[in-house]
């Protein structure tokens, strides 16, 4: 019971810290924020993995397998999309620098 309460306390503390940090994020980054936090919500992949730490019956294996695939999709896809999205935000000086180096190597 004590462990449960402690875990609940961690939940509350994380919510508080998260609030303090996230409210400062500029609107320009709201979409990457959403896709990144989306990926983080795939943290349940850890729960799916832990399902297989004990003996599983067939039904549990099916459920766990689907959960693993779905969560992996969520996590990997989310971080990859966010990374790609953020790479779109360039200033002209950065783009010009890239083109310059492309000329050199190309």
């Amino acid at each position: 019971m004590a462990d449960f309460l402690l875990t609940a306390a961690v939940l509350a503390a994380s919510a508080g810290l998260g609030f303090a940090v996230i409210r400062r994020i500029p609107p320009m980054l709201h979409t990457p924020l959403m896709s990144m936090t989306n990926a983080v919500s795939g943290v349940v992949v850890l729960g799916a993995l832990l399902l297989f730490a004990v003996r599983t019956d067939r039904l549990e294996q099916v459920a766990g397998g689907i959960a693993l695939a779905a969560a992996a999709f969520n996590v990997v896809g989310g971080f990859a999309i966010t990374h790609r999205m953020l790479s779109f935000f360039r200033k002209p000086s950065e783009r010009a620098g890239e083109e310059h180096s492309e000329c050199r190597t190309g």
Partner: peptide, 17 residues
């Protein structure tokens, strides 16, 4: 399941949303 990691991540995502 008693995972602090799940709990913390989930809470932060919930707050963000």
């Amino acid at each position: 399941i008693g995972s602090w990691l799940l709990v913390a991540c989930g809470a932060m995502v919930g707050v963000s949303g």
